[in-house]
Design a binder for these strands. Structure first.
Length: 490
RNA sequence: GGUCGGUUGGCCGAGUGGCUAGGCGUCGGUCUGCAAAACCGUUUACGGCGGUUCGAAUCCGCCACCGACCUCCA
C-alpha cells in the first residue's frame, strides 16, 4: 500500500507519515456523541473531519474499519466529583421519557443530521449500554493488574499508582504532581484515594434509573471506560487511529490511555488525531456556554443569530474550508461566503459537462491533480485542496469563455478530478440535483429555449423576456451565452 | 495560577525564510437588447518592539491582546 500521507499525531506533537499496523487494514475509532440533546454545529466538525479522513483512506485503497460510539450511559454532569447526575437520566426526567427513549430520540436526530451532511456511516456504531459485560470484564482486568480498587461498591482507577509505572498526562502535557497540588480538596465522598482517580464502576444511588448488576454493586460504568473497552473489542489491542475533539484530550483521552495501558501493559493507539473547535465571536461553541446553534436550526435558519438558513452542504463546505486543527469562527458573513463559494464550485461541474472540446490544449490537469494529492497528504489540508480545485474552476470557466482551451482528454481528466476530489473525498454533492424527471425537463427546456432563441433572432424581446420571467417564477434561471443559452434551477 | 495554542487584508481562512493560497465582499472594465453568469483587473495583510539574516509575515527574544484545557462539552 503506497502513500505519502502524513498526519499530525497529538501524542508526539508532530506530523508523521501514516503507516498502518496491518495494511491494507486500518482501524479508526472516533468519539461519538452523548445523545441527550440535539446535535449542534460543534458536532458537525469532528463528524466531517473524520469523514474526510475516512474517505481519503478509502480512496487510497485501505480497508478501513471505522468505529464511532454512541454514549448512552455514564456521562455525568459533574465528572469531577463523580457525583453529577447522568446527562441522559436528567433529560429523561425533564422530558418525562424513559432514558432509552431519550437515547433513541437524539440518536435518530444525530443520524439524520449526519446523513444530511453527507457523512458516511461508520462501520460499527457500538453503544455503551450494549457493552456492560465487556466493561465489567475490563474492570476485572484492571483490578487484577492492581491499577484499580473497590470502595463501597464502586471501582476507581488508581491514577497515582499508574503514574508510578507509566506517564499519566503524556497526551495533554499534564504533570500529575502539579495537578495534585492545584486540585481542591474533595468534599463529601471520600471513596477515592486521590482526586484524580476516576470511576470505572459507580454504585447507583437508590432510585437511579439506569443500573446493572455486578459483583461490586448495582451500578453503571464510568464514562471513560466505554471507549477503551469498545475500541479494543472491535479494533484489537493495538489499533491505528483514535480521533475526537480537542476538548476531549483531558481528561477523557488521557484516562483512556491509562485504562488501556494499565490493562494491556502497552499503548493501544498509534495515532491520536484531534479536531479543533468551532467558535462564535471568538469563543468556543458549547452547550454549557449557551452559545450553540443546533444543526436543525442552521438548516432551517430558525435561530436568532442566523440571518438565513444554510444548507447542509454549505455547512460541510464551511468546515472543509478551514484546516481541522485550526479554530473556525462562525458568522453569517462567513457562512454566506461559503454558500457562494460552494455554488461556484458546483456550477463548474455542470459547466464542465456542457463544455465543447478544443483540438489543442492550454491547461495541465495532471499538475492540478498532483497538487490536490499533495494538499491532502500534508495533514489533510482541505483548504489548500479547495484552492487547487478553484484553480480548476477558473480554467473550466475560462474554457467556456474561450480564453483557455481544453481537449476532450482534458475534459475527461477534469471530470475525473471533480468526481474523485469534490464528490468522493470532500463529499460535496450538488443539492440542486434530483429535482424532477431529468430527461423530460431537459427536453422541455431545450424546446422552450429554442423558441426563445428564435424570438430573439427576430428581435422579439417581449416574447424572449416573457419566457425568461415565467421560467424564473418557476425557479429556473436562464442565462444567454454567445451561442444559445443555458439554464439551471435556482 | 499551570499547560498549550493563536494574533494574516472588509469577512472567512491557507502558507513558505526571498517567487506575495483560495473563497466571499467592494470597486472598475470586458461581454450583453436588458439581466444574470463568466472573464480581466482592483482593493486594505501579515499584533507591537527589538534581534539573527543579503533578505522575515515566516527563525529568536520581550511585550500586548485573544482563546482552549485544567469540572462536563465535539
Amino acid at each position: 500500500m503506497q502513500n505519502n500521507f502524513s498526519i499530525y499525531n497529538s501524542l508526539t506533537r508532530r506530523k508523521e507519515k501514516f503507516e498502518p499496523l496491518n495494511p491494507p487494514f486500518v482501524g479508526m475509532y472516533v468519539c461519538g456523541p452523548t445523545v441527550y440533546s440535539d446535535a449542534h454545529l460543534g458536532h458537525a466538525r469532528p463528524a466531517i473531519v473524520f469523514d474526510l479522513l475516512y474517505r481519503y483512506l478509502l480512496h487510497l485503497g485501505y480497508r478501513v474499519r471505522y468505529v464511532r460510539n454512541i454514549t448512552d450511559v455514564g456521562h455525568l454532569q459533574d465528572e469531577e466529583a463523580d457525583e453529577g447526575e447522568d446527562k441522559i437520566i436528567r433529560q429523561a426526567k425533564k422530558e418525562k421519557l424513559e432514558p432509552m427513549e431519550v437515547v433513541q430520540k437524539y440518536m435518530n436526530t444525530y443520524h439524520r443530521n449526519m446523513s444530511q451532511l453527507n457523512t458516511l456511516p461508520p462501520s460499527i456504531e457500538p453503544r455503551a449500554t450494549g457493552h456492560i459485560i465487556e466493561q465489567q470484564e475490563f474492570i476485572k482486568k484492571l483490578l487484577q493488574s492492581g491499577f484499580a480498587y473497590e470502595a463501597n461498591g464502586s471501582v476507581y482507577f488508581d491514577v497515582v499508582k499508574y503514574s508510578e509505572k507509566y506517564n499519566y498526562g503524556k497526551l495533554s502535557g499534564r504533570v500529575l504532581d502539579e495537578l495534585l497540588q492545584e486540585s481542591r480538596e474533595l468534599e463529601g465522598r471520600e471513596d477515592k484515594r486521590s482526586p484524580f482517580d476516576f470511576a470505572l464502576w459507580k454504585k447507583a444511588d437508590p432510585g437511579h434509573l439506569m443500573k446493572w448488576p455486578s459483583q461490586w454493586s448495582e451500578g453503571y460504568p464510568g464514562w471513560h471506560l466505554e471507549c477503551s473497552t469498545m475500541s479494543i473489542k472491535y479494533l484489537g489491542e493495538v489499533f491505528d487511529i483514535h480521533g475526537g475533539g480537542m476538548d476531549l484530550m483531558f481528561p477523557h483521552h488521557e484516562c483512556e490511555i491509562a485504562q488501556s495501558t494499565a490493562a494491556l501493559g502497552r499503548e493501544s493507539v498509534r495515532y491520536w488525531i484531534h479536531n479543533n473547535m468551532i467558535t462564535i465571536n471568538g469563543q468556543k461553541m458549547a452547550r454549557s456556554l449557551g452559545n450553540f446553534i443546533t444543526l436543525d436550526e442552521v438548516f432551517s435558519g430558525s435561530h436568532p443569530l442566523l440571518e438565513q438558513p444554510y444548507s447542509p452542504m454549505t455547512v460541510r463546505f464551511f468546515i472543509l474550508q478551514a484546516h481541522y486543527r485550526s479554530t473556525l469562527d462562525f458568522s453569517n458573513e462567513a457562512l454566506k461566503g461559503a454558500e457562494k463559494g460552494l455554488e461556484r464550485l458546483m456550477k463548474a461541474a455542470i459547466t464542465l459537462d456542457r463544455l465543447k472540446p478544443s483540438t489543442d490544449s492550454t491547461v495541465n490537469v495532471d499538475e492540478i491533480k498532483t497538487k490536490c494529492y499533495e494538499a491532502l497528504d500534508d495533514d489533510l489540508n482541505s483548504p489548500v485542496l479547495l484552492a487547487q480545485l478553484f484553480e480548476a474552476v477558473r480554467l473550466i470557466n475560462s474554457a467556456r469563455e474561450g480564453t483557455e482551451k481544453m481537449t476532450a482528454s482534458d475534459i475527461a481528466k477534469m471530470k475525473e478530478l471533480f468526481s474523485v476530489f469534490v464528490k468522493d473525498i470532500l463529499g460535496l454533492i450538488d443539492e440542486s440535483a434530483g429535482r424532477g424527471n431529468e430527461k423530460i425537463v431537459s427536453g422541455l427546456m431545450k424546446l422552450i429555449l429554442d423558441i426563445r432563441h428564435e424570438a430573439r433572432q427576430k428581435k422579439d424581446f417581449a416574447t424572449s423576456d416573457k419566457i425568461r420571467e415565467e421560467l424564473s417564477r418557476l425557479g429556473i434561471t436562464v442565462r444567454d451565452l454567445k451561442d444559445g443559452a443555458e439554464w439551471e434551477f435556482e
